[in-house]
Design a protein around this nucleic acid. Structure first.
Length: 715
DNA sequence: CGGGAAAAGCTTTTT
DNA sequence: GCTTTTCCCG
């Protein structure tokens, strides 16, 4: 194996003797490479069988990448290796041990939308007020409990509200059990619980997985930590890789403290720091280091590079979000001139809503772009409809699927009828399907309603029979046709309906592709496909080769790198977000998010903000983000006020065009001035006049800069 | 049942 | 402000 491509610290991590290891890997320090080389080393030099290795990542994408890179490196298939996400691996485990776990063989995975509907229904059935117990918050509560590994009866409670929430949790828990559904958190919980209670099984798995490796360890939550510890047992070797400075998922239960806890629970663990950065210029790195230093309780790490200092960081103050967007587009065009490919440029922002203005500006200039995040393929309405038919075929007790399609496409079954079925199901603890069957036997409905209902049951039963022997993709095709979904969406007018039809067609292809890849092991193909749809958030890889500007949130940028990065919306209230403002811990997480953003940039970083921003229909004035002030001024280049493009603004932007900043008066040489980022300084030179006036200022702390007069205050 | 009007949201996201 | 969900009526 080629090790000379690794630096000494990396080599140390890769070649460490068996035992526990904690690798603190800074941004851009080659963390993934180390992890992959380590696994290869274990196999080739320590003669560990791939069969004995368990590697955990946080996304399917990371898992797939790791697998394929390993296969390339070792020239073997990594099939026998357990590489995957906590959820994916738990799923694999539960599919094998469904019986011991007390699950039906065809257990269905609920995604968060299914979970939401189910919880809301339970709140209503319990006659609770949706305003006092908002389904979304309740869902949050339940998931938070699950992430801490607490079942309904294990939650301590004193106040009435929590007691009610637990009641809902309990009812939800029972509903899941009755319908054979498990949610994402359950995958981990049930795996953990089964291993704890079944010593034989535990011994078997502990004996098998002699080497455990976990990536992005700073993102693990309580149940994941417990899960890992259980697999580790007393004698297996555990390697964790993480960066406390890049922990940005605290809000969904991730705990940085798990890193410290690991050192305590595995005291023999060797700590290795990877601090050499291969990604960013010296300037960008200095900015990142200075920023993150403001956080308390860090494990401590200082990134360095032997590369060039590179270009200064450009901070731009737009007068509103449109101006900010046009600045970004203008600079993107400049970058294009300077031989940057569009795909090498990323625009990052705190929240998704910010993408719109930027998209509009890009569109106006005909610059191709791609927005990451947003609605995923398997989350689309039409796809979920089709999958619901398949789910009901596979498992009649799947209530979520039942509710979704009993009247989609419409077949004359109204809300009243569905409510009756629900009620009956509740009072006799039946699944909706069984409740419906009973009610029909009891001749409960009017003849017309009964006919519609019978037709529905008949449809599902026929589908099940007819597709029993069909190949998976044929099965999907059959369902699409006989369910009338195609017909239903054909009626939807406009482009939307057309896209939906295309998506449905694509589902047949997806099924075909899936069965050809054939990783379904001993699961029936349909069940495997449904699990795949629930667990894998298939990202369209085809677009990856297109040359377009990459737009995404800071969260989704983690793990990526780009030669040029724009960080838009660097304003107080937006970034840091106003919901984090009064919580020091949350502010630190925002700062880490900013750190992640800055360290995505390889050569050139722009940070922009808007004086006025329209949010939720209201115009709001914000101060520049505190994070801008935390970057040493000597690393910052220039502040420009207005771009040439203001003239190109279309009618809709007229408002922006009409905006005139308050004249600050004329400046003269020798005058003392103040700037909100650079601080105090003295005017050295003036050029032009009015608001277009450019002023050269010698700042006390920041040195000499040339900027637009409007951003200076006379002292 | 479907369409239009009114109302309600509205960080960050993977699984 | 814009988008999604809900409500109400023909």
């Amino acid at each position: 194996m080629i090790l000379n491509s690794l630096n000494p610290a990396q080599q140390e991590a890769v070649q460490a003797p068996l035992g526990h290891q904690l690798v603190l890997a800074g941004a851009g320090s080659g963390k993934t490479r180390v992890l992959i080389h380590r696994i290869a080393w274990l196999i080739e030099n320590e003669k560990i069988s791939p069969f004995n290795i368990l590697a955990v990542t946080f996304t399917n994408k990371a898992a797939n990448e790791m697998r394929s890179r390993l296969e390339k490196m070792l020239h073997v298939t990594a099939k026998s290796m357990w590489i995957g996400t906590f959820h994916g691996l738990s799923h694999r485990f539960l599919r094998t041990h469904w019986q011991e776990a007390g699950l039906p063989q065809s257990f269905q995975i609920l995604d968060s939308a299914d979970q939401f509907r189910m919880i809301r229904r339970i709140i209503n059935t319990l006659n609770l007020d949706e305003d006092r117990f908002p389904p979304k918050e309740t869902q949050w509560f339940i998931n938070a409990q699950k992430e801490e590994g607490r079942e309904p009866h294990q939650v301590d409670t004193h106040d009435f509200t929590t007691q009610t929430l637990i009641k809902i949790y309990q009812a939800y828990h029972e509903a899941c059990q009755r319908t054979g559904a498990i949610d994402f958190a359950d995958l981990l919980l049930k795996t953990h619980k089964l291993l704890l209670s079944n010593t034989q099984l535990l011994a078997h798995y502990q004996e098998r997985f002699r080497c455990l490796l976990v990536d992005e360890f700073q993102d693990t939550n309580a149940i994941q930590y417990a899960w890992l510890k259980l697999f580790a047992g007393d004698s297996n070797s555990v390697t964790i890789v993480g960066d406390d400075d890049q922990s940005i998922y605290g809000w969904r239960g991730a705990r940085i403290e798990n890193i410290q806890r690991f050192s305590k629970d595995f005291p023999s663990a060797k700590v290795i720091r990877l601090e050499q950065n291969y990604r960013s210029s010296g300037t960008i790195l200095k900015a990142a280091n200075a920023l993150i230093e403001q956080n308390s309780g860090r494990l401590g790490k200082n990134l360095w590079t032997d590369g060039k200092e590179g270009e200064l960081i450009t901070i731009y103050a737009g007068f509103n979000e449109t101006d900010e967007a046009f600045f970004i587009v203008n600079r993107i065009r400049d970058l294009q001139q300077n031989d940057y490919a569009l795909r090498e440029i990323a625009v990052l922002y705190r929240s998704n809503a910010q993408s719109r203005v930027i998209e509009e500006a890009l569109m106006q200039f005909g610059i191709p772009y791609r927005v990451y995040g947003g609605l995923r393929y398997f989350d689309r309405q039409e796809i979920k409809d089709a999958l619901a038919y398949l789910r009901l075929i596979a498992n009649r007790s799947d209530d979520s699927a039942f509710e979704r399609i009993i009247n989609t496409p419409t077949r004359g079954i109204g809300d009243r009828t569905i409510a009756t079925i629900r009620e009956h199901a509740k009072s006799f603890s039946l699944t909706l399907w069984d409740a419906l069957q009973q009610l029909i036997e009891q001749k409960f409905f009017s003849t017309r309603t009964e006919m519609s209902l019978l037709a529905f049951m008949e449809l599902i039963n026929t589908m099940t029979e007819k597709t029993l022997t069909l190949e998976l993709h044929k099965q999907v095709e059959y369902v699409l046709c006989t369910s009338n979904l195609i017909e239903h969406y054909r009626k939807e007018k406009g482009e939307k309906g057309l896209t939906r039809l295309e998506n449905l067609e694509e589902l047949v292809n997806a099924a075909h592709q899936f069965s050809q890849d054939g990783i379904s092991e001993d699961m029936p193909p349909l069940a495997a496909f449904l699990a795949y749809a629930a667990l894998e958030s298939s990202d369209e890889q085809a677009d990856a080769y297109d040359d377009c500007v990459q737009l995404m949130t800071l969260h989704s940028a983690k793990g990526l790198e780009f030669p040029a990065v724009f960080l838009a919306g660097c304003e107080e209230e937006l970034f840091p977000h106003y919901l984090s403002m009064n919580n020091p811990k949350a502010i630190e997480e925002e700062r880490r998010l900013c750190y992640v953003g800055i360290t995505r940039a390889m050569r050139k970083l722009y940070m922009t903000y808007a004086e006025v921003r329209r949010t939720y229909g209201k115009e709001a004035y914000h101060r520049p983000s505190r994070f801008l002030h935390e970057i040493p001024v000597e690393l910052v280049d220039e502040i420009r006020f207005r771009t040439k493009t203001t003239k190109v603004m279309t009618h809709s932007q007229n408002k922006a065009f009409a905006y005139k900043p308050e004249a600050q008066g004329q400046f003269r040489v020798g005058q003392k001035v103040y700037h909100r980022i650079f601080g105090n300084g003295t005017v050295l030179d003036c050029e032009g006049d009015g608001e277009e006036m450019k002023v050269k200022v010698n700042f006390v702390k920041a040195g000499t800069k040339t900027l637009i007069a409007s951003y200076l205050t006379a002292k």
